[in-house]
Amino acid sequence: MFLMIFVNDFWTLEDVPVWLLHTAAEADAMGFSDVIFPMFLFIVGLSLPFAINNRMTKGDSNRVVLQHIVERTFALLLMGIFLVNFENMRSEVMMIPKYVWEILLIAAFFLIWNVYPNKPERKRLYTALKVSGYVVLIVLAAVYQGGTKEDPRWMETHWWGILGLIGWSYLICSVVYLYFRQRLLLVIFSWFVLVLFNLADFAGWLTPLDAIRNTFWIVGSGAMPAFTMAGVVASMLYQRHFRKDNATIFIAILILLGVLSLLFGFGTRPFWGSSKIRATPAWLGICTGVSFIVYAFFFWLVEMADRKNWANALKPAGEATLTCYLIPYIWYALVTIAGVSLPLFLRTGMIGLVKSLLFSLFIILLTGLINRLGVKLKI
């Protein structure tokens, strides 16, 4: 989350080194920014076995857990669709100014999915707040206009947005783990199927399915859930096979999986290039390999070397990830409406990068503060 907020702030800067930026769709290249989201999806996969197993130990049945998975997916998809349409709106013809629309949107998310105190005497109030959030969403959708002057359009799924991609990946991988959680080999097989689906699409083997591509498809041609499923595999390996006396073997397995993924990525790069926008097999393999190896490093650092205090300042980003992700939307809207902008020299080159790093830390600390005030999203 710290790095995601950091790279998402680059749009406010000038003269950012090219190697830090997202690369164009047609380019055979990867920037630092192109690796961050895959690693986030990998971390989603790392958390899934713990989250689902925790619900099981509390007595939840498969049906109850599945219902929760569907509800969480719906929330992520809904938020993703609204946010991606914000990027495609025709603000000049709308009744509500663009950035006011944005602030109201994020406020509605907080009203609906805030963790309200467990106070029965205020249950009606909290229900009314949630309902009001949905009413705001309906109004925002009703006044929305997108497309072009020649081809006006209402809200569309587009590419689902970041939260939507997380939602689809979460749904697929959660359901797979829910029903295969006792069978590591089947989970690994599911991961391979997603990777092969991505490879098959670029190899042209899935052209007979073109008729359904626009209505029924796996996001990223399997790449997005493949990142998450790789995290699920790593988490299952940890839960089943890690012990203090075999830590070196466990870390070696992670590094081996990382190296194999890198070989797959670089091996397929000559055919279709490496591109995040196109979600090529090379991008999938390289970012998966980086994720395994980075996870192995942090596992050694935190679990084996017992060095974890360095992350205390970043804890709110892990405890309230969705809250942390959404706060910048409000921040950018408010400063734009107010017409506030830092001097150019504070937004240029190395000084600008330091500014974005400090901004990311500020957002995380702000998340911790509002959490203590009782504002925290949970879906």
Rank of each mutant, 00 (worst) to 15 (best):
G204T: 10
L125R: 10
S274A: 14
G45R: 12
L357E: 01
D34V: 06
R243I: 00
A317W: 09
P281S: 01
F250T: 01
W191L: 07
L326P: 07
F227K: 02
I337K: 02
R307D: 10
N85L: 05
F6R: 06
L21P: 00
M155D: 12
N8S: 14
F74S: 09
K123P: 00
G374V: 04
M89S: 12
L140I: 07
Y295M: 11
M95A: 08
I327Q: 11
L257E: 05
L66P: 02
F37A: 14
I188G: 00
F202M: 04
G368A: 07
V115D: 10
F250L: 06
L373Q: 13
L46W: 08
F297A: 11
W300P: 03
G204P: 13
P120A: 03
I370Y: 07
E26Q: 09
V233E: 03
A234G: 13
L263W: 06
W154F: 14
S91G: 14
P117L: 01
V136G: 02
G146Y: 08
K355V: 09
Y325S: 08
A203N: 09
I218Y: 07
K130C: 03
R124P: 00
F250Q: 02
G164R: 12
I52K: 05
F299R: 03
K276G: 03
A311C: 11
F74W: 10
L111G: 00
I363G: 07
F242I: 00
V135G: 04
Y126Q: 01
E156T: 12
A27S: 14
P208E: 03
T127P: 00
P49A: 12
D60F: 15
T228G: 03
A108T: 15
N114P: 07
F32S: 06
M224E: 14
R243G: 04
M350C: 02
V259W: 02
F10M: 09
N246V: 02
G289W: 07
R153W: 01
L366A: 14
N88S: 09
M350L: 11
M236Y: 04
A230Q: 03
L256D: 01
W101Q: 11
L129I: 11
R278G: 01
V259T: 09
L342I: 08
F10P: 06
A230I: 06
Y238V: 00
C324M: 15
G161H: 08
A338Y: 06
P17H: 14
L209T: 05
G231C: 05
H241R: 07
H68T: 14
I103N: 04
I364W: 08
A320D: 13
D245T: 06
L342G: 04
V44G: 08
I69K: 10
A200W: 13
M94V: 03
D28N: 15
L237G: 09
F362N: 01
M229L: 12
V65L: 15
L178G: 03
L284E: 01
L342V: 08
